[in-house]
Amino acid sequence: MKELSLNILDIAQNSVKAGADKIDVLLEENEETLVISIADNGCGMSEEFLKNVQDPFCTTRTTRKVGMGIPLFKLAAEQTEGNLTITSKTKEKFSDESGTTITALFYKNHIDFTVLGDIVSTIVTLIQGQPDIHWHFNHKINKDEVGVDTDELKSVLGDVPLDNFEVICWIKEYLEEQYNEIGYN
């Protein structure tokens, strides 16, 4: 993956597949570190699955016996001397509190740090693909903050779906404007 934003797009698809109806994509960065966390309220993973999930030969795919999503994300973090952690609660044991959180820590000044890239495009793509999910995106950069919460948008939009083209364009510009305002590139 050329950009961490592509890893985020990929990892978030796991949350979609886990049947989540709320997914948080949270980024927090300062001069030195970037922490990316993707948290869902989906079905969760069993302890057994959780033990193996960082192994490429563990996957829920039916078309292949390998799954590279988490291993690639983990590699991207570890090659900066950072790390990746996963916590998960299964529906069977935790019912309404089930879900999975994947958190990755990156050291930005490390020579092998992958750029975040086009995060706006990733968020817009996620919303377009799964407009019925409640997406909450927040990116803290030092003291500044950029974000969007689709529930807030839905309360204004009523019956108009989030994947309506004009709405998608609005979300894109809304985020881009916030980034421009704080001078983030």
Binding site: L9, D10, L72, T122, T125
Partner: peptide, 28 residues
């Protein structure tokens, strides 16, 4: 296709080009 394989190969700009292009062509 937006799995790991598709995304790594460049599916995101392809998807966005369809979303934009279909609307610009009035095919929504």
């Amino acid at each position: 296709g937006m799995a790991t394989c598709g995304i790594a190969a460049g599916a995101r700009p392809v998807l966005n080009a369809f979303v934009e292009g279909v609307n610009e062509a009035g095919l929504a």
